[in-house]
């Protein structure tokens, strides 16, 4: 009896300790030297903006320098592959448009698997895409677009970043789900897509919604690939609310550690990011580039990404089939 009592107390103490311990362990990992945060794209893009905002906020929180290292190439796969093979000691981290990296690795053979090669730290942002048309275009709404494409199968021309990328797949998904077709024209980079739309080279184009900011007179956003309106553009309707099914494929922006990184390091950064993404200063830093924070802890981030994978799979399969 007495023994049982002791056991109970012991058990309760253990539970209490565990309860207390989880935040304690999370704070336990204190980095002792600079952390390299790899951005697998050139400076200046959406992911880079996130990276710099995260870098300066983490630096303040952790008390060690966070060094931003841009490693562009192959749609983010070069930098991602480098982090995947880095020493898992907590001092090399990746910030990537995980949706873009995922789609890239689904479309072409890649040396990494975004689900298997990393420890997911947390999702900290979201790249949301939209369709825009030239300012003088007769297409006013998403429905107009679908009707125009239906009237002239394959006749409309549209601009995206590159095949199988995070700009191509959402639109292709829209076309497939609505049984319409149009001719795609790859333009490298958001600015070129934007110029092609403004110059009426194409009938419509897809871009990160933040890239339409400041061009309200030159082009018109007719729909957003998201289940909710974009916080910084509350007047722009989503495709969902216009009754056009798209699959809402976007690209989360996620922090990753190499596989095998100690879990206390992962937890410390994840907890820090949970606080940072709630800070108004962080939101403001992003808002000046048209971006917004979005926090999901590791498991939730993986689940959201898996959903994107499921929705993109048929589109990618069809693209691959068409290529062969």
């Amino acid at each position: 009896m007495k023994r049982r009592h002791t056991f109970k107390i012991f058990g309760a103490a253990m539970a209490l300790a565990a309860m207390l311990a989880s935040p304690v362990i999370a704070q336990d990992w204190t980095p002792k030297r600079p952390i390299n945060l790899i951005v697998p794209s050139s400076a200046g893009g959406g992911v880079d903006t996130y990276g710099r905002a995260v870098g300066s906020a983490l630096q303040e929180k952790l008390g060690v320098p966070v060094v931003i290292v841009n490693k562009p190439g192959a749609g983010g796969l070069v930098g991602s592959a480098e982090v995947a093979s880095a020493r898992p000691d907590g001092y090399t981290m990746l910030i990537a448009a995980s949706g873009a990296v995922l789609l890239g690795s689904m479309f072409k053979d890649a040396p990494i698997d975004i689900f298997d090669s990393f420890e997911t730290v947390a999702q900290i942002g979201d790249l949301v895409f939209c369709i825009a048309v030239p300012a003088d275009s007769p297409i006013m709404t998403a429905t107009d677009l679908v009707e125009a494409a239906m009237a002239d199968p394959g006749g409309l021309r549209w601009a995206h970043g590159s095949r199988g990328s995070a700009t191509h797949v959402p639109v292709q998904s829209l076309l497939n789900l609505n049984g319409i077709s149009a001719t795609d024209v790859p333009f490298q980079g958001g600015a070129k897509i934007r110029a092609a739309i403004i110059g009426e080279q194409v009938d419509f184009g897809v871009m990160g919604i933040q890239q339409s900011f400041g061009f309200e007179n030159e082009l018109r956003v007719i729909g957003v690939f998201s289940d909710a309106r974009y916080p910084l553009r509350p007047d722009t309707p989503t495709f969902d609310e216009q009754g056009i099914e798209t699959g809402n494929i976007g690209s989360p922006v996620t922090l990753y550690y190499p596989k095998g990184t100690p879990s206390d390091a992962v937890k410390t950064i994840s907890a820090a990011m949970s606080e940072i993404t709630a800070m108004p200063e962080f939101s403001e830093a992003l808002a000046s580039s048209g971006l917004t924070p979005k926090y999901r802890a590791g498991d939730a981030a993986d689940a959201a990404l898996l959903l994107i994978k499921e929705k993109a799979q048929p589109v990618i399969d069809e693209l691959k089939q068409a290529a062969n």
Partner: peptide, 15 residues
């Protein structure tokens, strides 16, 4: 230009 996040082309004169 690209490294500093500035996209050249006609829209450069707008941005």
């Amino acid at each position: 230009f690209l490294v500093h996040g500035i996209q050249i082309g006609p829209t450069l004169f707008l941005t």
